[in-house]
């Protein structure tokens, strides 16, 4: 479990992270001062930090950006699931699907 002190993200301040958590951009466990993060949350914090500070995307635009990104990754995970399911089909079935996709 990772705490705010062990995040080590340069230029990240606690008040700002608090706003992200309140807005549900980051899903932390625990309350302010005792937040706990999983690795996926740390990657999420880095992402938002990059978007906010390296790309200077303003806070008001962030919900749009994050919702589009989350939908993109939902699609990618679903596509991967479909891919995995297709891989278990017999070769003739896969060939038939490929043929339909190519026409």
């Amino acid at each position: 479990m990772i705490t705010f002190e062990s995040l080590h993200i340069t230029g990240l301040d606690e008040a700002e992270l608090g706003r992200w958590i309140e807005a549900s951009w980051v899903r932390a466990r625990g309350t302010r001062g005792a937040w706990q993060f999983d690795e996926v949350d740390v990657a999420r914090i880095r992402l938002i930090h990059t978007l906010r500070h390296e790309m200077e995307i303003g806070e008001p635009a962030m919900p749009v950006v994050l919702s589009l990104l989350d939908q993109l990754y939902d699609l990618r995970r679903n596509a991967a699931r479909l891919n995995k399911a297709l891989a278990t089909l017999p070769p003739e079935a896969r060939a038939a699907i490929l043929e339909r996709l190519e026409t």
Binding site: E39, A43, R44, R46, L47, L69, Y73, R76, R77
Partner: peptide, 9 residues
């Protein structure tokens, strides 16, 4: 670094 896409995918 561990990037967002590695987790999100």
């Amino acid at each position: 670094q561990q990037s967002w896409r590695q987790y999100a995918d």
